[in-house]
Simulated scan of single mutants.
Amino acid sequence: MLVSGTGGASDEWTHVADPARPGADLKPDPSAVLPSLARSTRVCAYDRPGTTRLDGAPNRSTPVHRPTTAAAAAEDLRALLAAAGERPPYVLVGASWGAMTASLFARTEPARTAGIVTVDGASPYLEDTLSPAQWSAWTDRIRAGDQGEGLEAPDYPAAVREVRAAPALPRGLPAVVLTSDHPWDLAVGGGSTWPAWLAAQQQLAAELHARHITDTDSGHGIAVEQPRLVTDAVRDVVERVRAGQGR
């Protein structure tokens, strides 16, 4: 189950970036994560409420309640899976904000979760690794960047509280954490936030007892910049699940 980043619809998983044309529009490609995974396993992506397509068009989903919490997003995912008749267990793949949704779903639905992959995922430990000034400035920036009524507006402080209040992830859950290695910065609160991002990723990987892939040759958008890495990580988790090497 592929869970996109903030505001992102399902086409984040069917498109790739052109390394020869930085900044160009993403293009659909058979090497993208979803079509690549579909060659070996069933794979699903979805348009969360309040997200938009890559061309800027709104998706056909309902408006989202705002601010958007991880708990609300996890409940939407439960409803989607039930309506679609998709039977568990699931391997959850969360990119950026989507990792908060995937993590909370896994914690609250352990019997239905077979594995987890985070793709430069938002880590609840970022509140600890950023300075108080940086964390406050970042959450202020997210609120200031609100895109309008009905569109997704992540509430990171609430999401962190929700994840930390939830049960621990099942021990032995097959997991992979992919982390960007091209420095990028939240540019808030003074000083670089890049070391804090890396530290939060390291703590997330330790909590998950995950294989941590840090040599990604990518910025934050690993799924579109290096789709093969994401595909291989998901296949690794799926194969471990099928081999009975999970919990």
Rank of each mutant, 00 (worst) to 15 (best):
M1N: 05
V3H: 10
G5R: 07
G7N: 02
D11K: 03
E12T: 12
E12D: 14
V16E: 09
P19W: 02
R21M: 05
P22Y: 14
G23L: 05
D25Y: 11
K27I: 15
P28G: 08
P28V: 05
S31C: 01
P35I: 11
S36D: 00
L37S: 02
R39L: 09
R42N: 13
C44N: 13
C44Y: 15
A45W: 05
A45G: 09
G50L: 02
T51M: 03
R53G: 14
D55L: 00
A57N: 08
N59V: 15
R60E: 15
R60W: 14
T62E: 15
R66L: 02
R66K: 13
T68E: 01
A70N: 05
A72Y: 13
A73F: 11
A73G: 10
A73Q: 14
L77S: 02
L77V: 10
A82Q: 06
G85K: 09
G94N: 06
A95L: 01
S96I: 00
G98T: 06
G98C: 02
M100I: 04
T101E: 03
S103H: 00
F105I: 05
A106K: 04
G115K: 02
I116V: 09
V117P: 04
D120A: 03
D120S: 01
S123R: 04
P124Q: 12
Y125Q: 02
L126H: 00
D128N: 10
A133K: 14
S136V: 14
W138D: 01
T139S: 01
D140A: 15
A144I: 09
G145H: 06
G145Q: 03
G145W: 08
D146L: 00
Q147N: 11
Q147S: 13
Q147P: 12
L151S: 06
A153R: 15
D155C: 10
D155Q: 01
A159V: 10
A159Q: 04
V160A: 14
R161G: 13
E162T: 10
R164H: 03
A165C: 10
A168I: 06
A168S: 14
L169C: 03
L169I: 09
P170M: 14
R171W: 11
G172A: 04
L173N: 09
L173Q: 01
A175I: 03
L178E: 01
T179F: 06
D181Q: 02
D185P: 03
L186Y: 12
V188H: 11
G189P: 06
G189H: 12
S192M: 06
T193Y: 04
A200C: 03
A200N: 07
A205D: 01
A206Y: 10
A206D: 09
E207A: 08
R211M: 08
D217W: 15
G221S: 14
E225S: 07
E225W: 04
T231M: 03
D232Q: 07
D236A: 15
V238W: 05
E239Y: 07
E239F: 11
R240V: 10
R247M: 12
